[in-house]
Amino acid sequence: MNGRPSFFDTIKQTPNLTSGLIDLLVERIVSGELAPGQRLPTEQAIVSATGVSRTVVREALASLRARGLITTRQGLGAFVSDKPISKTFSIVPEELESIPDILHVLELRMSVEVEAAALAAARRDAGDLKRIEIALGALEEAIGAAAPGAEEDFAFHRAILEATHNPYFARFIDVFGASIIPRQRVRLGAMPSAKREAYLRRIQKEHEAIFAAILAGDAAASRRAARAHLTKSYERYAALREQAGTVAPEPLTAHGRG
C-alpha cells in the first residue's frame, strides 16, 4: 500500500496504543470502509503510517483475528473476513476503569492462566523457552527505563500461553490484548521513582519464578508460581480498593490461593 492511509490519521493516541489501533480498524470494518475480502496494509505499512511499534501492530491484528474480523493467508497477508463475526466477547480499556472490574478480570485470568502454566511446563520446546525468555528480558528493560511495561508484560504471559501448544489459549488472550494487564491503572507515574521500581521488581520476581518452573519442566511448580503471581496481583488491587473505599468481590480464600 503506497502513501499514508487516510483512516490512520484518526488513531487515538491513548496510553494503550494497541487499543486505539484495534478500535480504529474495527470501526472501519464495521462501517465498510474496509470491505469484506479487502487486504489490509502490511505490518510495516501500518507501522510507518501510525508510528506505533511492530509489536503493537501484531497485537492489534492478533486481537482482530481472534474476534473473527480478519483472516490471514500464508504469504499474502491479512484480509477482512468475508463473514465477520458480529458479536464477540471482548474486554476494552474503558471497561477497566474501576478496581472491582480489574479484580473480576484477574479472577478470569487465574481460572485460565494457572493451568496454562502447568501445560506450558509439560509441553514447551526450545523455541517456546526462548520466546518466554526474550519477553522476560524486554520486561526487565522496561523496568530499567522506568516504563509501565504493560505491553511487555502482556507479551510474557502470551508467550506462556503459546507454549501450551493449544491455540485456544493464545486466542483467548488475543481477544483482550494488553488491556488485560491493568498495570497502568496503578498510576505508576505518580509513585516516587524508588517506590515504583520496587513495586515493579516484586512483580518481575514473580515472573521469574514462573519462568524458572517452566524451564525446569515442573508442571506443579509452574501452576503454583502462576497462581501466586495472580493472587498477589489480586491482593495488590484489593488493597487499593480498600484505600479507595470501593465495593468489590469477596477476597480470594486461602483454599483458592493453592
Rank of each mutant, 00 (worst) to 15 (best):
M1L: 12
M1C: 09
N2I: 14
N2H: 14
S6M: 15
F7R: 13
D9I: 12
T10K: 15
I11L: 15
K12R: 13
N16T: 10
N16P: 02
L17N: 07
G20E: 11
L21M: 11
I22Q: 13
D23W: 13
L24D: 14
I29P: 14
V30E: 15
S31V: 06
E33G: 13
L34K: 10
L34C: 09
A35L: 15
P41E: 06
P41G: 12
S53W: 11
V56S: 14
V57H: 14
V57Y: 14
E59N: 11
A60C: 07
L61G: 06
S63G: 13
L64C: 09
R65E: 10
A66P: 04
A66R: 04
R67N: 09
R67E: 06
I70S: 13
T71Q: 12
T72M: 09
T72Q: 13
R73N: 10
G77S: 10
G77L: 15
A78F: 15
A78E: 14
F79I: 10
V80K: 02
K83R: 14
P84Q: 12
S86R: 15
K87H: 14
E94V: 03
E97T: 00
E97F: 03
P100V: 00
I102K: 05
I102N: 02
L106N: 02
L106D: 01
E107R: 15
E107W: 00
L108H: 03
L108W: 02
R109C: 05
R109L: 06
M110K: 13
E115L: 11
A117G: 09
A118F: 07
A118K: 05
L119K: 08
L119F: 07
A120E: 00
A122H: 09
A122I: 01
A122D: 03
R123D: 00
D125H: 11
D125R: 10
A126E: 15
A126T: 11
G127A: 08
D128P: 01
E133T: 07
I134Y: 11
A138K: 13
L139V: 06
L139H: 04
A142F: 01
I143N: 09
I143E: 07
A145C: 10
A147F: 02
G149M: 05
A150M: 09
E151D: 14
E151H: 03
D153C: 00
H157Q: 02
R158E: 06
I160F: 01
I160G: 01
L161T: 03
T164N: 01
H165F: 12
P167L: 01
P167D: 01
Y168R: 07
A170V: 03
R171M: 07
F172R: 00
I173W: 00
D174H: 05
A178Y: 03
A178L: 04
S179Q: 06
I180S: 03
I180A: 02
P182S: 08
R183K: 03
R183Y: 02
Q184C: 03
A190W: 11
M191K: 07
P192R: 06
P192Q: 04
P192E: 06
A194E: 12
K195R: 04
R196S: 01
Y199D: 00
R201L: 05
H207M: 02
E208L: 11
E208Y: 04
A209Y: 02
I210K: 14
A213Q: 07
D218I: 06
A221R: 08
R223Q: 12
A225V: 05
R227I: 01
Y234P: 02
Y237A: 00
Y237T: 00
G245H: 07
V247S: 12
E250K: 15
L252D: 08
L252F: 12
T253E: 09
G256E: 07
R257N: 08
